[in-house]
Design a protein around this nucleic acid. Structure first.
Length: 417
RNA sequence: GGAGGCGUGCCGGAGUGGUUGAACGGGUCAGUUUCGAAAACUGAUAAGCCAGAAAUGGUUUCGAGGGUUCGAAUCCUUCCGCCUCCGCCA
């Protein structure tokens, strides 16, 4: 949610910034400003009448006054109705505006994404490399077939050493975060209500991408960012409580309806995957420092596994609605001859905090919105195939990254039984 | 699943239709006092919105929504949350 005052005061620069990510024909700031004007006019009128009524109601009124107030009451009611309608329209239009991209975020869509950095060499194979589905099946790490039987396509079961590898990854992530004592570990519920999904910015836009229960109006989380963003909703934090830094584990659920399924085989895009998410709440002046820290931590996690990946700054149009700036870490998937996101690091500035009404008292005891940031740290579902594919050897075996071996009873190589 | 109770400010806790944004107590902050501190005393201490350059004024909010009324924290209603007892399951 953007600040309406920003629109009122400096429509031109807001518009210019938003055009970096939205088509001109889809951007109508004037109507929002107009609705806001109308809204305030009616509100002022209504409040004047209410003041009159309150004055008369301070003591028991006489018969005559009661009659006058009756009429006044119905007038207030009418204004109120009018106001409710305008506000609904106003709010939904304002809420639909995406965040203002940061200054250094370039305009346009995916094709304008820019590689900032690249880690390690792209592995070369002197044999025909297999894709991760084949590797995982041959090495009996994952059972795709039986999973489809039980749950449908897009689900998988980790079996044996595969389950061990998955768990090793999570342990590696968690142990890494545990070294940073200011971070608090969280395991939130996986189901959340509609209001929370709105606050996190996933409603209304991503309704179709979430799994909803039939009876109750709650959905499975698509990322624990949804939970962490809501954890402090409605609160006013003390300044010395900030920054708050969390890392949370959750299994994430996404319908991915109609998406990409054919080329993205196996576990590149599934309905269920495991993820550790980092999340910061900061004072505004510190949020970019936090951003750099999150980028660094996410990078260190991938680098610890010796995987070749790129650090990519997203163009405005490819950045999530709520975010002012996003950097993705994209790991090399040889079979697809492409790079796939394993971590997305974003600064939402006050956009989410405004929706969630998360504030802090500044040094003048004024309440200000906090800034929120999130970053995967990391999701397993793309790291797992990257490990299989990048570390495969000519005999079909796969080397276990050094950092993971301690979590797998010293196992160094995954081999066919 | 059945029966009952409860939801008020940072916290505890009054308040059952008329100057109640809310008694009282605690906390916190500031001041007085003190060499300093404690104690005591005095004062301050919610948020949103609207108008205003500001001072300030207005308005809304007592779990959330709707209703009754000239007037609602107080009455009705729906929803949400919490608690207790019984049952059921582990």
């Amino acid at each position: 949610m953007l600040d309406i005052k920003l629109l009122q005061d400096d429509k031109k620069s807001v518009e210019a910034a938003l055009l970096k990510r939205v088509d001109k024909k889809n951007l109508d700031l004037n109507s929002i400003i107009r609705l806001d004007k109308e809204r305030r006019a009616i509100l002022t009128k209504k409040e004047a009448l209410q003041a009159k009524r309150n004055e008369a109601s301070k003591t028991k009124p006489d018969k005559e006054t009661v009659e006058v107030m009756k009429a006044l009451g119905s007038e207030i009611k009418n204004l109120d109705k009018e106001l409710t309608e305008i506000e609904a329209e106003y709010n939904s239009r304002l809420a639909a505006l995406p965040n203002i991209p940061a200054n250094d975020v370039v305009a346009g869509g995916k094709k304008n994404n820019k590689i900032l950095d690249s880690f390690a060499e792209q592995p070369k194979f002197d044999f025909k490399p297999k894709d991760h589905v084949e590797l995982a099946t041959n090495l009996e790490l994952i059972d795709y077939k039986r999973s489809a039987k039980m749950s449908g396509s897009g689900f998988w079961t980790y079996i044996g050493n595969g389950a061990l590898l998955e768990w090793a990854l999570l342990n590696y992530f968690i142990d890494y975060h545990r070294n940073h004592s200011e971070y608090e570990f969280m395991i939130p519920p996986y189901l959340l209500n509609q209001e929370s999904a709105f606050i996190s910015g996933h409603l209304p836009k991503f309704k179709e991408d979430l799994y909803w229960t039939e009876e109750e109006k709650i959905c499975l989380n698509a990322t624990s960012e949804m939970m962490l963003g809501n954890f402090h909703a409605g609160e006013i934090l003390a300044k010395d409580e900030l920054p708050k830094k969390y890392y949370a584990f959750s299994t994430c659920f996404r319908r991915e309806s109609g998406a990409y399924r054919t080329e993205e085989r196996g576990m590149i895009r599934g309905h269920q995957f495991n993820k550790i998410e980092m999340f910061h709440l900061t004072v505004p002046e510190d949020s970019w420092t936090s951003f750099d820290e999150l980028v660094k931590y996410a990078q260190e996690l991938v680098e610890g596994l010796d995987l070749h990946y790129n650090t990519v700054q997203l163009a405005a149009g490819d950045t999530g609605t709520a975010m002012a700036k996003t950097i993705d870490l994209e790991v090399w998937i040889p079979s697809m001859n492409t790079y796939k996101e394993v971590s997305s690091i974003s600064n939402a500035l006050d956009y989410q905090a405004r929706r969630g009404n998360i504030r802090f008292k500044d040094k003048d005891s004024k309440n200000q919105f906090v800034h929120t940031l999130n970053a995967s740290g990391l999701a397993t579902s793309r790291i797992f195939p990257a490990i299989l594919e990048q570390n495969q050897q000519s005999d079909g075996s796969v080397k276990v990254p050094k950092k993971l071996q301690q979590y797998m009873g010293g196992l160094k190589v995954l081999m066919q039984k």
